[in-house]
Amino acid sequence: MTTYETTTVDETQAVAQALGKLVQPGDVICLAGDLGAGKTTFTQGLAKGLGIEEPVSSPTFTIIKEYDDGRVPLYHMDIYRLAEAAVQEDLGYEDYFYGAGVSVIEWSEYLAELLPEDRLVITIRNREDGGRTLTFASTGPVAAARLKELSESCPTSH
């Protein structure tokens, strides 16, 4: 597990941008945190690291947004509105998880039974001082390698 403490939105996005430069097709990133914790903010930084110039916004009402203009396509999912019904929805999740892009899933806990075993889980928590704590955990060898690369390239790790 790796933890980053950020004090500004720019710092949060810088960590995400560093990860965006490392991710590869088929990587799955699960974002956890309360409403307003910064999951979409994190995804915006990741998109910058992928070279995506299109504005990234929360896909709360569309569920899945695809961004294809970067180094690797980004599949941004927000499962919040579907909640427990998410696993019953036939939205082609597996096509995204095992496709040519990187899947970033907000509220991924609702898809727990469908998620690949190897994934990166990032928990984002707001702190009382206005900053954020980003806790990274890997659940398999590919995610562990990505986390190791991030720790080596992004020196603000604690």
Rank of each mutant, 00 (worst) to 15 (best):
T156Y: 04
R127K: 09
E109V: 07
G38Y: 05
V15A: 01
T7G: 13
T3Y: 07
L22R: 11
D34G: 05
I52Q: 06
V104R: 01
L91C: 01
K48F: 10
E89L: 14
G131L: 08
P155T: 13
L82W: 01
E5H: 15
P116S: 06
G51C: 08
E152D: 07
A100E: 15
S103T: 04
G70P: 08
G20M: 08
S151H: 05
S108Y: 12
I63T: 09
Q44P: 04
Q13M: 15
G36P: 15
S103Q: 02
G26W: 12
E89W: 03
G131Q: 03
I105D: 04
R146S: 03
T40E: 05
A32Y: 05
P55I: 04
Q13T: 15
T2E: 13
V102E: 06
T139L: 02
D118A: 06
S151N: 04
E53W: 06
T60R: 00
P116Q: 00
R71M: 08
A83Q: 14
E5Y: 13
Q24E: 14
H76T: 09
T139C: 05
E149G: 02
C154P: 00
G140Y: 09
D118E: 04
I29A: 10
V121N: 09
G99C: 02
E94C: 00
P141E: 10
E109K: 09
L115C: 05
A18H: 13
L31Q: 14
V142Y: 00
R132V: 01
D78R: 12
G20R: 11
T41K: 12
V87D: 11
V9C: 15
Y80V: 10
D118F: 08
G101M: 12
D78H: 15
P25A: 05
H158C: 14
L35E: 10
P59Y: 06
E53A: 13
Y96G: 00
Y4I: 08
M1F: 06
P73L: 01
G131I: 07
S57W: 00
E66K: 10
H158K: 10
G99R: 02
P55M: 07
G33R: 00
Y93V: 00
E106D: 11
H76Q: 11
R146D: 02
Y98E: 12
V15L: 10
P155K: 10
G26T: 13
D118K: 07
